[in-house]
Simulated assay, not measured.
Amino acid sequence: MTRAEMGLRERTRRAVRAELAELALGLFVERGYERTTVEDIAAAAGLSKRSFFRYFPTKEDVVFGDVDDLAERIADDIRARPCDGDAWACLHAVLRDWEPRVHAAQRDLAGMRLIETTPALRARLHQKRDELRDRVTAALRERPGASLDAFTAELLTAAAGAALDAAAREWLRSDGTADRAALIDHAFTLLAPRL
């Protein structure tokens, strides 16, 4: 969606969501996730608790920003890819192209470490990943001319998810110095199906 297509109300909503997410992450890093309340985040933003919940359904969701929108856009990109290449190549190409935006949505090193060390956030991350994988699996099967059965599509999507997870963890181990795109390429190469 271009800026011209997005209305003022939607741009304002996204700006407030981004501000809330940034404030929340700062508070979580400073105070700890468990010790930071929704009231604390709302007060830091000059909002009421009720207003906070207009932007995010739960405290966990503030960490994940617009992941749902991002997931749908990735699925749309997969659906739009022609079936002239195999499904694994399609997943690799799409996820490689989206890597900078996925990385931006995951915030920074501090945010990723917060997620990795907070059980409630790790659980929410796994739920979000499962939802994304369901969308990607469906999108692989919906590509024009695709003839993937559900099992194969799900298996390829799970393998692609494992590649992304391993790349993200290696990036964390490197203290954010490793090239995330190169890690993704390497992971996809190592996991490439041998049919």
Rank of each mutant, 00 (worst) to 15 (best):
V94I: 13
L172N: 00
G85V: 08
R3A: 12
R143M: 07
G111T: 06
E154S: 14
D108G: 15
A187D: 05
M112W: 04
A44R: 08
A138D: 10
G7Q: 04
D130L: 14
K59V: 10
V67G: 01
S174E: 03
D84V: 02
I41T: 03
R173N: 13
D69M: 10
F53T: 04
V102H: 05
L155H: 13
L191V: 03
C90G: 07
D175Q: 12
A4K: 09
R3F: 05
W171C: 04
G111E: 06
P193N: 05
T36V: 03
R9D: 11
D175P: 03
E154Y: 07
T58D: 08
V63I: 09
A42H: 02
F28P: 00
A120P: 03
T2K: 14
E34I: 08
S51Y: 13
L70G: 06
R143E: 02
R35G: 09
T189M: 09
L109R: 10
E154Q: 12
D179E: 11
W98D: 03
H186V: 04
A80N: 05
L164R: 09
D175Y: 13
R180D: 03
W171A: 00
L114A: 01
T2Q: 06
T12H: 15
G32Y: 11
A87W: 00
A71M: 02
W88N: 04
I184M: 08
L183A: 02
L47W: 12
W88L: 07
A24E: 07
E30L: 12
A181L: 14
G46K: 07
A89Y: 09
E5P: 01
A163L: 10
E60C: 07
R50H: 14
V38N: 05
H92P: 00
V38W: 06
F64V: 08
L20P: 08
A181W: 06
R11S: 15
K128L: 14
R54L: 15
L91I: 11
G85A: 14
A123E: 14
A89M: 11
Y33R: 05
R96T: 15
L23C: 02
R50K: 12
A44W: 02
I115D: 01
V29H: 05
A105N: 15
T118V: 09
L27D: 03
P144A: 11
P57T: 06
C90T: 15
T157R: 03
L109C: 09
A21L: 03
A120H: 04
G46Q: 12
T118F: 10
A139G: 00
P100A: 09
E22K: 02
I41A: 08
V16D: 12
P144I: 00
H92V: 00
T58W: 13
G26R: 01
